[in-house]
């Protein structure tokens, strides 16, 4: 009985403390047609940290995303949530994107974005396996107290 309780508490703790990472792919519509893979880590029901990696490159982007629709409303079941994402990249690019989240959640959705040089990007959620296949580098999300940059964080 004790072992079962311990196991149950460990499982509960691991579920509670694990991140809510979701994964997405971004395609540059014009220009070189670059492909990016990204992930967002939900910090609360309104805000998420975002990390984006260019495929076959060392370029990374950091950013933040704000949901314009509550996920915990009583009538949330069939809503489409809008979200705004801004990313600052290591090569100076700034990408601004609007997402449409299905059921106002972060795990399904499509997005359209533009950078400051008018390149257009399309975003769509992908499974974790596709992200892991294309992004080999280790990464970490920003610390809560980071004040490094206005547009990135």
């Amino acid at each position: 009985m004790k072992k079962t309780l311990l196991l149950l508490s460990i499982i509960t703790l691991s579920v509670v403390t694990s991140g809510c990472n979701q994964y997405f792919r971004a395609d540059m519509e014009n220009g070189n047609g670059d492909i990016y893979y990204g992930t967002f880590n939900r910090r609360d029901y309104t805000q998420a940290d975002v990390k984006l990696f260019k495929r076959n490159s060392t370029m990374t982007c950091d950013g933040i995303m704000f949901l314009d629709n509550s996920t915990r409303m009583v009538n949330w079941s069939n809503k489409r949530g809008l979200a705004k994402m801004v990313l600052g990249c290591s090569d100076g690019t700034v990408i601004e994107a609007d997402w449409q989240m299905r059921k106002a959640d972060y795990n399904k959705g499509i997005g359209k974005g533009v950078d400051q040089f008018n390149n257009i990007y399309t975003f769509k959620a992908v499974p974790k396996s596709e992200f892991k296949k294309n992004v080999k580098q280790k990464y970490d999300f920003v610390d809560d107290n980071t004040t490094d940059n206005y547009l990135k964080y």
């Binding site: 933040i64 809560d144 004040t147 490094d148 940059n149 206005y150 547009l151 990135k152 964080y153």
Partner: peptide
């Protein structure tokens, strides 16, 4: 004085 980051302003 630098502005706080957007993240900190929200938090």
């Amino acid at each position: 004085t630098p502005s706080d980051s957007r993240r900190q302003i929200y938090r």
